[in-house]
């Protein structure tokens, strides 16, 4: 919705695994193994910005519950982008939390299936008015 940073990383490694889930028993205090849980981990590398770090590779890392190859790649890219000293607004926590949570963003895409004919009608009204009354050429466009 608000644009994206220009990042094209290389995937270093994607790990899909089971991790042991261990919790402390509330009464006895002993560690209890509840069972395995699916985990994904991803690492990407990129030179990222030609100006700032052209001679270096930077590492981005992300881990999620479940086996989500695309999500850990996306998360790793975000991890790298958000460490920049003066990040673009699309690389700030505020932007990322608003716009890239997977359920949210899939919902935003699904919303395009809802009817939009009133909004479109309003846009067409403007296009017609501009077509009927084209703006006058200003003097700066004239050649001498």
């Amino acid at each position: 919705m608000r644009g994206y940073g220009p990042v094209h990383p290389t995937v270093n490694e994607i790990r899909l695994s089971h991790a042991d889930l261990i919790v402390k028993h509330p009464v006895t205090g002993a560690d209890i193994h509840l069972g395995p849980i699916r985990m994904s981990q991803g690492e990407v590398v990129s030179t990222f910005s030609e100006k700032q770090m052209a001679n270096k590779l930077n590492l981005g890392f992300c881990a999620t519950f479940g086996w989500n190859e695309i999500k850990v790649i996306a998360g790793s890219m975000l991890d790298m982008a958000m460490d920049l000293p003066e990040p673009h607004a699309s690389q700030t926590e505020e932007y990322v939390l608003y716009h890239t949570e997977s359920v949210e963003s899939s919902g935003f895409c699904i919303h395009y299936k809802l009817p939009h004919y009133v909004t479109f009608n309003s846009t067409v009204d403007n296009l017609r008015r501009v077509a009927q009354n084209p703006p006058k050429q200003t003097s700066t466009h004239e050649t001498t």
Binding site: T119, S122, T123, D125, N126, R129, V130, P134, P135
Partner: peptide, 12 residues
């Protein structure tokens, strides 16, 4: 106004 001769904001 300068570019199109009128406001071009549709809905919203």
């Amino acid at each position: 106004l300068v570019r199109y001769g009128s406001f071009i904001q549709g809905a919203s």
